[in-house]
């Protein structure tokens, strides 16, 4: 394993994108950082720019308006970039699947490494998902 990947696995930084979610997955992601779950003790950190991130967390089925922005963000990400789809909407489109403004779940456009289903997934499930994603490296 290269030194780079070793360092990445030690402390993965994540960037979070809301691609038309209802907010709830995003709050649960934020909840992971707070005292009860506190993922920062494992070196997992939410960062403010995709250019610093090792993993991209995408919640929500993708709306037509947000898709070009999400693709642009993925282009800017340093590779390898893990992509994690969070929530029922992120995995399959969920209850909004048939809406006129949804262009389909994110795995139609980006290579998704891990799907975390649930509406919203519990913080424990989120942590387990990120750990599984790291196992793929």
């Amino acid at each position: 394993m290269s030194l780079f990947l070793k360092a990445l696995k030690k402390s993965p930084w994540v960037f979070h994108v809301n691609a038309g979610a209802c907010n709830n997955c995003d709050i649960e992601i934020l909840d992971c950082l707070t005292p009860r779950f506190d993922v920062e003790r494992f070196g997992i950190k939410l960062v403010g720019s995709i250019k610093h991130a090792d993993a991209l967390i995408i919640s929500g089925g993708v709306t037509a308006n947000i898709l070009p922005r999400v693709l642009e963000i993925y282009e800017q990400a340093p590779k390898p970039c893990l992509v994690v789809a969070v929530g029922s909407c992120g995995c399959s489109g969920g209850i909004f699947r048939d809406a006129y403004n949804m262009v389909g779940p994110i795995d139609h456009y980006l290579p998704v490494d891990v799907f975390i289903p649930g509406c919203p997934p519990r913080p424990e499930a989120l942590i387990a998902g990120i750990v599984k994603a790291l196992g793929k490296l």
Partner: peptide, 24 residues
């Protein structure tokens, strides 16, 4: 950016199904 078209979706759900949609 997050517009999903919920009002239209709601029109093909039954009275009992709509709460599951609107809570999202």
């Amino acid at each position: 950016y997050s517009h999903r078209g919920i009002e239209l979706l709601s029109e093909d759900k039954t009275w009992d199904q709509v709460p599951f949609l609107v809570e999202r």
